[in-house]
Simulated assay, not measured.
Amino acid sequence: MRSACAFIFFASLSVVGGALAQSATDLTVTGTITPAACAPMLSGGGEFNFGMIAAQDLDQEAITNFISPARQLSVACSAPTRFALRAVDGRAGTQPTVTIDNFGLGLSGVERIGEYKLRTTGYAADGSAAIDVLESRDAGSSWLKAPSDESYLFNTNGPNLTAVGGIGANEPSAIEVLTTDLAVSMAITAAKNLTLTDEVTIDGAATLEVVYL
């Protein structure tokens, strides 16, 4: 059960030679104390290294796409817990196009190198694959079944969440262990938009978040 407390801060202003005037503004303090804790873990130390990419292999006029091998993402909770996933972009604002699931690859000078998505597939909850992947576009107030088991983790530039529930469920289930395969789908911007006379360092970074519901 959510608990909240609130207090009101009052401010007053005295005007010399006139009547006392008062103004006030409300301030609320809210939060949730959860009885269980969930810890996310990504195999391979969370590193997706695409190695050396030759400039000549990049398309001059359009983006060049790459896909990484998948790593296992797991979330282990100390007790059955309702939670969702999203990611925080460590290079926010560097992606050429801003969408609900694009993350930036950093800058080369002032040039935007490209963007990537965090593709997930093969979800299992407490060892069972008999689940539906659910998505929320309003911070968990309502949920819809994802178009397919292949989904993309949302960037925190919007109130979007990914979770799992039982078959036909209209909200996430309380589970102890969630597993899924996660791969990076990377798009390097058209080569004509990059200065490639020196090495360009791909510098994407993100933090995976568990959001308690």
Rank of each mutant, 00 (worst) to 15 (best):
I131N: 07
P159Q: 15
A174E: 03
E150M: 15
N155Y: 04
N170K: 05
L161I: 08
P159M: 11
G168W: 02
E150T: 15
L144T: 06
S142C: 07
E135Y: 09
V177G: 02
E150L: 15
S151G: 04
D132Y: 11
S141T: 10
L144Q: 10
W143V: 05
E135M: 09
G158Y: 03
I131D: 11
A139G: 14
L144S: 14
R137Y: 15
S151I: 09
N170E: 04
W143M: 02
P172A: 06
F154T: 03
T156Y: 04
A139L: 10
D149F: 07
V133N: 08
P172R: 01
I167W: 00
A163Q: 00
N155L: 13
L178T: 12
A130V: 04
E176S: 13
S148D: 15
A146Y: 10
Y152C: 10
A129F: 10
S148A: 15
G168L: 03
T179Q: 12
V177L: 12
E171K: 11
A169L: 03
L134I: 15
A169S: 11
A163G: 03
L144K: 14
A174Q: 04
N157S: 13
V133S: 11
S141N: 10
I167N: 06
A163W: 05
S173R: 07
A174V: 00
T156V: 07
N170M: 01
K145F: 00
I175A: 06
T162R: 07
I131L: 08
S142W: 07
E135A: 08
S136W: 11
N157D: 15
L134R: 07
S142F: 08
A169H: 05
P147S: 11
E150R: 11
I131E: 09
G165I: 10
L153E: 03
A174S: 14
E171Y: 11
G165T: 06
S148Y: 10
S136K: 04
I131Y: 08
A129R: 14
S142N: 06
S136F: 09
G140D: 07
I131W: 02
G165W: 05
D149N: 06
T179C: 04
A129L: 11
K145S: 13
L134V: 14
W143D: 01
T180Q: 05
P159E: 15
L144H: 09
V133W: 12
P172M: 03
V133Q: 08
A174H: 02
V133M: 05
K145N: 12
A174K: 07
S142M: 07
